[in-house]
Amino acid sequence: MAHFPVNHPARPLFRVLAGLIGLYILVFGVYGTVATWGKPLFDRSDTHALGLRTNLAFALVSVVFGAVLLVGASRRTNLGHYMNLTAGVVFLVTGLLMMSVLQTSANFLNFSMSTVIVSLSFGLVLLATGLYDRIGPAEHAAAEERRRRHTIAGNR
C-alpha cells in the first residue's frame, strides 16, 4: 500500500509550484486562444504561444486545465492533493500519447517535441506535488512525525 506523507513541512512550496504551473498553463491557454482565434479548431499550422506550438482546441483545454489547477492550489484541503495527482498522470499520459503520434495526422492538439517535453516535465512536478500535498488531522501528523523520528533513530 502506498504511503503518502501527511502534513509535510514542504507543503507550501509544493502548493506554490502547482500554482505556478497552473498559472503558466492558464496564461498559455489565453494567449494561445487569442493567437489562434478564427482558425479551425484542430488546425495543424505553425502557431506558437509562449514558445509552444498550439491550436485553438489545445488552447481552450489549457485555459480550463490551468484554471482547475489554480483552484486546486488555492484550496487548503486534500482537494489539491487529489487534483495534483490526477493532473500529473494526465500530463504524463498526454505527453506520451502525443509523442507517439507526433508526425502523423492524429496529432490533433498540434504538439511539437518541445510541447511533449514541457508536458512530461509538468506531469512529473505535479505528481510530486500531489504526493506531498496531503493534509490530515493532528493525530495523523503526530504519528507521521513519530514514524520519521523512529526511522532516523533506528538507522544509527
Rank of each mutant, 00 (worst) to 15 (best):
H140S: 12
Y132C: 05
R53Y: 03
E145C: 02
S100I: 01
P40W: 09
G130L: 03
R146C: 08
S62Q: 04
T33S: 13
R44S: 13
T47N: 09
V118N: 12
H8Q: 09
L50T: 06
G136K: 07
N84Q: 11
V27M: 14
D46K: 13
N107R: 02
T36V: 04
E145I: 12
L120G: 06
A10Q: 03
G95K: 07
D46H: 13
V16R: 08
H150F: 04
L102W: 05
S119R: 03
L97T: 08
L79W: 11
D43R: 01
A2G: 03
A106W: 10
H8E: 11
L131K: 02
Y82F: 14
A106Q: 06
F65V: 12
L124S: 11
E145K: 12
R148K: 09
L85I: 06
L131D: 03
R44T: 13
T54D: 07
A142G: 00
R76P: 10
E144F: 12
G72V: 01
T54A: 07
T151Y: 00
A141H: 09
V6Y: 08
S114L: 12
S105M: 10
N107Y: 05
L97N: 13
N107H: 09
H3T: 11
T94H: 07
G136T: 08
R156I: 04
A59N: 04
F122I: 11
R156A: 13
V16L: 14
R147P: 00
L23M: 14
E145F: 03
M98R: 09
G80T: 07
L126F: 09
A73H: 05
F91K: 07
G88S: 04
V101S: 05
V71Q: 10
L96R: 06
I152G: 05
T86H: 04
A67I: 11
G19M: 07
L60N: 12
S100Q: 07
N78Q: 07
T47E: 10
F42A: 11
H150P: 01
F91N: 07
V68L: 14
T77Y: 01
F28A: 14
D46C: 04
V16M: 13
D133Q: 05
A106F: 13
S100G: 02
L92W: 06
L124W: 10
F111V: 03
N55T: 01
G51N: 09
S121Q: 03
S74F: 10
P5W: 03
V125G: 03
H3C: 01
M98F: 15
F42V: 07
R134M: 15
S119L: 00
L126Q: 10
G154D: 12
H8G: 07
L127S: 14
Y24N: 13
V89W: 11
L126Y: 10
L17M: 15
N107C: 06
T77D: 13
E144V: 03
V6H: 06
M98A: 05
Y132M: 08
D133G: 15
L85W: 05
G29V: 01
G72W: 08
T36G: 02
F111P: 08
A57I: 00
L20D: 11
A2V: 11
L69P: 06
L70F: 00
G136W: 06
L126W: 09
M98N: 12
N155P: 00
T47G: 00
M99H: 14
A35E: 13
N84E: 09
S45R: 05
G136R: 08
G154Q: 13
V30T: 06
A138P: 00
M99Q: 13
V90N: 02
S74W: 08
F122V: 10
A59S: 15
S119N: 10
A142T: 04
